[in-house]
Design a protein around this nucleic acid. Structure first.
Lengths: 342, 342
DNA sequence: TTGAAAGCGCTAACAA
DNA sequence: TTGTTAGCGCTTTCAA
């Protein structure tokens, strides 16, 4: 193993000089810098992470708390996780993976052992039990998701309220009077998961504001559940012409079911999704959607967290504006069928 | 922060005694042990990870290299990852997340900085470019997946050759003469990903051995692709009565397509899947399947890796035996339809 | 602009 | 069975 002393000897300087060249924390003459850098390269030196952490009280490691629940759609979680890792690397940080089932104990363990400098927590509930702990912890933290009481915490998420509003507005603008939110599995609502709850909220208020009739239903991610849910929806709401889906795995089955039931998209039924762009574009017809910019959110979460580590005090909650992209799955509301009533 | 010196003072012993009580590396009198443990609890002491790592040359952190490819089915990856994390925690280790796109550079960085004690690598290809590096690295490593040349490496995986063989045997035993392997997306074969390639191998050899006609086709994970692939298959192989699926996301669409094409499962078409048990049981009809025991494989990977860290030399490659569970989707081959030929 | 040296908190010889 | 102490490799004061 090559140490900082080896480099110092090789370059003919003191170890502190090598350290300062590497950290840039004090000015170094160009010649010295060059000589040191050359030695670093020649010897293939890389600082020992533990020694550095011990001396500087900074591990350059971020913890990522990721849920492993059966009801969560894993690919979306992984997109966030990947964004966090990629972004952390840009700040020369690594990411330690914590599963949410270790819970509060895991966070305390991590903090007390000084294993990580900060923590990113995903899958936040409105009344998340980890929130008080996080508030007390003296580790900087970043929540991806917004609890009801975010006092003293830093949160970031897509503005799901607005996401739902954009969907309802889009449908209302197209003349739809009767719309439904086809949501996440019911367990997600029961836990009061923030993103699902905020979406519901936005859906309801927008429907009220626009004077359209809106109903909501959860849906489990199986083909049978989709079929049953859609059939029930159509029975209870015969005039339904607009659907907002927030449930990635059922998107395929949903389109299939509509086809089978003879509802053309968008002629008979407009479908809007809240999902990743590539998922929306992979369907046929291509889905009008509000995208979930996991890369951006995960990336900014890390940016803000690193900022906190550097002493900045970021705004408590960042809501990333929702953007709706109209594609092929939404169109004007069909004329009410008068042939049977006339 | 409470240090080992605080504990030592509180208990009236030397710091080394505290250290030894905690590590169990030398015998301690019951009274001393008790006194030290009481002080540890009283003060809420937890060893500083960096100091421990620096002094002992062990970080108690494992790296997990996880692929983030579009063609991989993420939920399965996460099952492995979760198993690795859970299992690592049992050995008091944590898990550092590395994305595969950092590649060889990431592994070298991790090693040279002594950030981790060992590494678990997933998503192995037959000619994986990381294999030579891993061989040269002086970090213990564990591959989940089996490259062609695994000399000097430790690998573990489901016995996918046997998995395919079990499927073909099961179908052949039921009288099927004409079977197909509906595989992963073509990119997975093109990369020569080990699990897909091994399955193909087993499928071919078993078909040959049993004298049944076997064809193989990749399949992209979209509803359209499934429909097209199945139609082509049925056109080219009109006598097809058995299907082996190794492609989790298309299982739902596949059953749907078969239904739509008027093929009853299992009366007209037997379907076997190589997938997680809960996925197989979540379908209707419940699928006969060879399960992918991600928990077991991930767990044993860590067991073996910890063993290596403790100086044990494990067998180079562990193939977890495949187990086929017959459920409702496989049955006797239908009698050839003679009504049109007679 | 640079160097010397005191720790950071722990482990593991070495001693008793 | 326990204590003393020399490091582990780095950062950062303090001094020049």
């Amino acid at each position: 193993m090559v140490t900082i002393a080896d480099v110092a000897r090789h370059a003919g300087v003191a170890t502190s000089t090598v350290s300062y060249v590497l950290s840039g924390k004090r000015s170094i003459s160009p010649e010295t810098r060059q000589r040191v850098n050359a030695s670093v390269d020649a010897l293939g030196y890389r600082p020992n992470a533990s020694a550095r952490a011990l001396a500087s009280n900074r591990s350059n490691v971020l913890a990522l708390v990721i849920p492993l629940r059966a009801d969560m759609h894993v690919p979306v979680l992984m997109q966030f996780a990947a964004a966090v890792v990629t972004s952390a690397r840009r700040y020369d940080h690594d990411v330690l993976l914590l599963t949410a089932d270790e819970g509060a104990a895991g966070l305390e363990r991590i903090q007390q052992s000084s294993l990580v400098d900060a923590v990113v927590v995903m899958d936040i509930e409105l009344h998340d039990e980890r929130v008080p702990l996080l508030r007390g912890l003296d580790l900087p933290s970043m929540l991806i998701g917004t609890p009801l009481d975010s006092d003293g915490l830093t949160c970031i998420d897509l503005d799901f309220v607005q996401a739902a509003e954009l969907c309802v507005d889009h449908l209302a603008d197209l003349g739809h009077q009767d719309v439904a939110l086809l949501g996440t599995p019911s367990a997600v609502y029961e836990r009061q998961t923030a993103f699902a709850h905020r979406t519901l909220e936005g859906f309801r208020s927008a429907a009220r504001r626009r004077g359209v009739h809106g109903v909501e239903t959860p849906c489990e991610p199986t083909h049978e559940a989709v079929l049953k849910t859609v059939q029930e929806l159509l029975t209870q709401e015969p005039g339904l012409t607009g659907l907002v889906v927030q449930n990635e795995p059922i998107i395929g089955p949903l389109l299939e079911v509509l086809r089978r039931l003879g509802r053309r998209v968008p002629e008979d039924m407009s479908v809007l999704a809240i999902c990743a762009d590539d998922v929306a574009e992979g369907q046929s017809p291509r889905l009008s959607s509000v995208s979930i910019p996991a890369d951006e959110i995960g990336g900014r979460a890390v940016d803000l967290l690193i900022g906190k580590l550097d002493g900045l005090a970021p705004a408590p909650t960042t809501l990333v504006p929702a953007v709706l992209t109209a594609r092929a799955s939404s169109g004007p509301a069909p004329q009410p069928d008068r042939s049977t009533t006339a």
